[in-house]
Simulated scan of single mutants.
Amino acid sequence: MSSHDAALVTKDLFLLENQLPFEVLTKLMSFRNPDHKTRMKILTAFCDQVRAFPPGTELKEKITKFFCELPRSLTLGSSQGPAPDQPAAHLLELLHKQFCSRTIVPEQSEKSSFKNDSQMNWYRYYPAEELRSIGIHFKPSKTGLFTDVQFKRRWLISRSLYIPPLRIDNSTKSLLLNLVAYEASHGESNESRVTSYVCFMDSLIDTPRDVQVLRSKGILLNTLGSDEQAAELFNQIASRLIPDPYAYIQVKSSIEKEHRKVLKKWVAMWLRVYFNSPWTFIAFVAATFTIILTAIQTYIALFPLKDR
């Protein structure tokens, strides 16, 4: 297969309507190669390749290796999270487990505390460019898990929002839509992890400028061609989705609290304007020094020193 054909086959493999039960799939693959030794390595490597960031080895080699060595029986694991209790029913569910292995909803006690706090029952959405203007920095998470979104405070004014990196290409929309469709077919809120992730990203992306902010920080790798196309991708997918209201609730709460602190907004804006580059910093120091000298000169002119 050519690389183009391999990409099309991969897209078809993860369509919800194309899913074969693993019991059938592994039976078919056993005629080709019954070896069990490398089953976990093959499966996880194949799923890793689908969401590779940046792209790694040739995709067609991964597909060939996958079909040649898929074992009869399957006990799933994940290279990025704990192994699930039950094996996946099909390939799409395997990918979902691989990249959504952590919960994004708080414990029951934490849910109760948020319910009792009337001020924390709703949160406004702020685009990435606006959050950057108040001093919130964006950084890629150390894992590719859709659920690995964190808000961390360091020192007095340093605040960072960690988001899993994502490569955006021609297959991204299809992959996200099928993962969302898979979650909708289950009908359980605790399974709405990709749905909640897409809605959260949509809340950060309103315009191409927001995409540029996330792209400049290594969170998005846009291979579609323009930031406008990437922004439209999330806006279109999330237009009719309903996320879990408790997904990323600690992150949303922290962002809302930070946005209400007017003094920190001023400090963040001052740092962004005058310390954005060495040249602006030098200009600021020079201007400050000039003002100080002018003030001293004016004071001496108004109140000359008396000769002793």
Rank of each mutant, 00 (worst) to 15 (best):
H4Y: 11
D5W: 15
L13E: 01
L13P: 03
L16A: 10
L16P: 00
E23F: 09
T26D: 00
K27S: 14
M29G: 13
R32H: 12
R32I: 15
P34I: 01
H36E: 09
H36T: 15
T38Y: 12
T38S: 12
M40T: 11
I42V: 15
L43C: 08
Q49E: 05
A52W: 00
G56Y: 00
E61I: 09
K62V: 00
K62A: 04
K65N: 14
E69M: 09
S73H: 07
T75A: 05
G77M: 05
Q86E: 09
P87V: 00
P87E: 00
A88W: 01
A89L: 14
L92R: 04
E93T: 04
K97F: 09
K97Q: 15
F99V: 02
R102Q: 12
T103G: 11
T103D: 12
E107S: 14
Q108F: 11
S118K: 13
Q119W: 14
Q119D: 14
A128C: 07
I136L: 14
G144K: 14
D148L: 07
Q150T: 15
L156T: 13
I157Q: 12
S158M: 09
L161A: 06
Y162E: 07
P164R: 08
P164N: 07
N170R: 13
S171G: 12
L179A: 04
S185T: 13
H186N: 12
R193E: 04
S196V: 06
Y197T: 09
Y197P: 09
S203F: 06
L204K: 05
L204F: 07
V211F: 04
V211W: 03
G218Y: 02
L224N: 04
G225N: 05
E232A: 10
F234I: 01
F234D: 01
N235F: 06
P245V: 02
K252W: 04
K257W: 12
H259G: 11
K264C: 05
V273H: 08
Y274C: 06
Y274E: 03
F275T: 11
N276K: 15
P278V: 01
W279I: 14
I282G: 10
A283D: 13
A287P: 07
T288C: 14
F289P: 07
F289C: 13
I296G: 03
Y299F: 12
F303V: 12
